[in-house]
Design a binder for these strands. Structure first.
Length: 111
DNA sequence: GCTTTGACTGGAA
DNA sequence: GTTCCAGCCAAAG
């Protein structure tokens, strides 16, 4: 399969992330069909440029792995979407996108 | 076609 | 809590 397919799948997975939600590189890679291509996702997103909501993709634990002003911009975009930050990290507890649709947080859910 | 680089990750120190 | 190390994968040169 051509690399273009890989990029397309990654972009598709990223586009599935709803506004106000975020996902890690590993999650996107798994959603695209490559559970261990976290770095590949980064490369694909870099190539895609702004063809996909790259700002919704974060490192493990909700940490921004970008450098310089890109990291600053990503944080701004996420905040504009309603994503909350806890220190230098994103509150994955509240904004982590899960394709599985968490049926029941079991007693953990509380208003 | 091989080597280097990088927007990664998980575990250990 | 941070920092360091080895492993993984894809894009660029």
């Amino acid at each position: 399969m051509p690399s273009t397919d890989y990029v397309s799948k990654v972009l598709a997975a990223v586009r599935r992330i709803p506004r106000g939600k975020v996902a890690t590189y590993g999650d996107v890679a798994a959603a695209a069909g490559f559970p261990r291509a976290a770095r590949g996702v980064a490369a694909a997103l870099h190539q895609a440029g702004g063809s996909a909501p790259w700002q919704r993709v974060l490192g493990a634990g909700g940490r921004i792995c970008l450098r310089g002003e890109d990291a600053f911009e990503q944080r701004l975009l996420l905040e504009a979407e309603g994503v909350r930050f806890r220190g230098a990290r994103v509150d994955m507890k509240a904004h982590r996108f899960e394709p599985r649709g968490r049926a029941r947080p079991k007693g953990g859910i509380h208003p």
